[in-house]
Amino acid sequence: MLRALGSQHLAEPLSSLLDTPMQPTATIHRLKAAGAPPRLSAFAQRADRHFKWLLVAPAVLLILALSIYPLLFSLVVSFINYDFQVPGHAFVGLKNFERVVFDPVARWSLLLTAWLSGISVAIEFVLGLLVALTMVRSFPGRGVIMSILIVPLFISPVIVGQAWTLLLQRPFGPTNYILTQLLGQEVTIGWMTERPWLYVSLIIADVWQWTPFMFVILLAGLTAIPPNLYEAAELDGVNAWQVFWAITLPHLGPMMLLALTFRLLDAIRMFDTIFIMTGGGPGTQTYTASYYLYTVGFTQFHLSQATAGSWLFLIFTALIVALLVRRLLKVDPV
């Protein structure tokens, strides 16, 4: 009985248990258990033996069915003809990939994705860090302000896009009126139609929604820095800027990298706000990678071309994940 219980996984914890001052109690428990072995059916015994795999099974099977299988399926699709406008499913080799790679719109959308996500994430990072720095020490009203600042995180990006549309779109939105009053001269910006303002609008919406993300993570990092370091620095008469460079920044480093990586991986998917605010337009001026692939697949119905493109995009992202995320989330043994 005991051997069955104390198989591999328990061997170590049990021995450590025995080393503790609790030894007498542990011994009693062992004796009790030995005296009254639970009666298990053959099925239950088998279930108990494979317990760890049974627990993992539902989640793993679901992910296999709805993530890995579709990915393999799409790999097949990207090498055949799967187009609602061209009949038949013949093997076409790399043709679908060629179509994407040589499509100027595809390259433009990838470039725009990089630019938009890069600029948005940079602004979010700086702004989030500044706000986090102001919120480290407690002050009256901090709890309420905290609750307000995190609100954008719980709103659908669609609604964020809608909210900024209401603010910016001419002639309804009040933004141009407010700017006119503030600047003292007539402002008539087409926030959703004119370059570069439509990019500004998209970035503002993204910054509004995701600065709290940076802020929350960086604040957690800041509060984890041991306060005695700051006390020591104060005793040494070091100025605030030096404290920031010598203490805050190095301690916050890993957290910064984590926040940046997570945010960047989400930012490059940018789709929802564009769908609502500009619809990719005017023309193809606000096509991001996701939006481009969506249009190719679901409005032009070149499904195999879209899957080929999404595989290229996937490999792109997988590289970032493999390089950065794995390093960040090292599973250190407890």
């Binding site: 579709p70 399926f73 990678a289 996701s290 692939l293 999404s310 995009f313 996937l314």
Partner: peptide
């Protein structure tokens, strides 16, 4: 565990196209 995590970072467009067909 890392395999499960990596699912979080797959771009949805890569999944949703084949899922739509299936």
């Amino acid at each position: 565990s890392f395999w499960v995590l990596s699912q979080r970072f797959l771009p949805p467009i890569g999944i949703v196209l084949p899922v739509f067909l299936i």
